[in-house]
Design a protein around this nucleic acid. Structure first.
Lengths: 196, 196
DNA sequence: CTTTACATGTAACTCGTTACATGATTAA
DNA sequence: TTAATCATGTAACGAGTTACATGTAAAG
């Protein structure tokens, strides 16, 4: 049987990006372009998306009546299409939070590569871990800047902000843990260089 | 222009699962079914895959000449198709390790949901975090069992095993960090219940 | 007589990525 | 004149998921 038939009665599937987009639009009305930038600055830490995908999903959401679009002409700039969430969209989001999200499994081929560690590729793996360490440092620095700027005192934050604080805190702790792991890995690997 | 044309000269893309499969087959010849179980027990901690996907990729790998298949009739059980890695496959893997892997971004809608935290859904989010905490505990326990059984003394392990030890170590540290985060989150959330 | 384990697959779909197209304005 | 920023999109594909099909044999 076709999935279209199976899901005919309004059942739903994943659509995590759609929910991330609506989350951003609950804060502020935005165009696709602005959304893409907003993702880079905050929500994208937890759900990455390209502008191409964002435009596609915006259209689908508008078709479903969860978003409303409005064309804004601009002087000296191309016109933009600003989206805002509808009442139906708000209701959908309020319900969505109550659905149990399934655990996301890690997918990282750095670790698959580690399963293939050998004396031939050991120095390359050291270089890869060092590269990742540098990237993690940069990300961590960014997260900590944001926390220092906007989430200094968690107790006094309004509820919604507390949630963002917690998400950010996870990112920071994760980053710190990864840096620590990198250092341990680099030490073990360097002690192995030269010996079988 | 078509991607098929663009990639005509043998350029490659992702295929991370194919590399994970070959990684497992470097250790031991296996059938698709056995591979699926092996993934559940070890490699799948870092790259999850279903049996359906594994069967597909096995065929592609055999078509490319990176794997060899052999039909094994079994008494009292269905016949199985055992795959082994070819010389070409080994070469491919040895080269693959030297390619720089791109960073995998997190995708977890638990954190997207946290962006939507409100007094209405606060108790539900508490329940979700508790659920995740329980799942993380179970996984962590499994990882630690494996480490205790097979990776007691990292210094004396052969190089390949050291890599697996490091991967496992990352999983364990990550799990511990997540448990800690859950506890902090639950505390902050519980202090918020009742107040705006 | 039913469930679990073994064993291999196909069909249909959604999700996400990469390449590419288009066109305006502003700053070096 | 070249590059960067703003702004919106299409085409094609790869990656991954879910449902479903098919069958044997052992264990309860």
């Amino acid at each position: 049987m076709l999935k279209a038939l199976r899901l005919a009665s309004g059942e739903e599937f994943d659509m995590a990006l759609q929910h991330a987009i609506m989350t951003a639009l609950l804060e502020d009305n935005m165009s696709g372009f602005e959304l893409a930038r907003a993702f880079d600055a905050s929500l994208g830490f937890f759900w990455r998306a390209t502008h191409q995908q964002i435009y596609q999903e915006l259209k689908k959401l508008a078709d479903k009546g969860l978003l409303r679009s409005q064309i804004i002409p601009q002087a000296g700039k191309p016109k933009k299409i600003v989206y805002s969430i509808t009442l139906a969209g708000r209701t959908t989001m309020a319900r969505w939070v109550f659905e149990t999200s399934k655990v996301q499994e890690a997918k990282d081929d750095l670790f698959v590569k580690l399963y293939n560690l050998s004396s031939e590729n050991l120095s390359h793996m050291v270089a890869e871990v060092e590269l990742r360490r540098g990237q993690a440092m940069k990300r961590l620095y960014l997260y900590e800047q944001i926390r220092r700027a906007h989430y200094r005192d968690p107790e006094t934050l309004p509820t919604r902000r507390k949630g963002i604080y917690l998400a950010l805190g996870w990112g920071i702790q994760q980053g710190e843990q990864f840096l620590q792991w990198c250092d341990e890995a680099l030490e073990l690997l360097s002690r192995s260089e030269g010996s079988p």
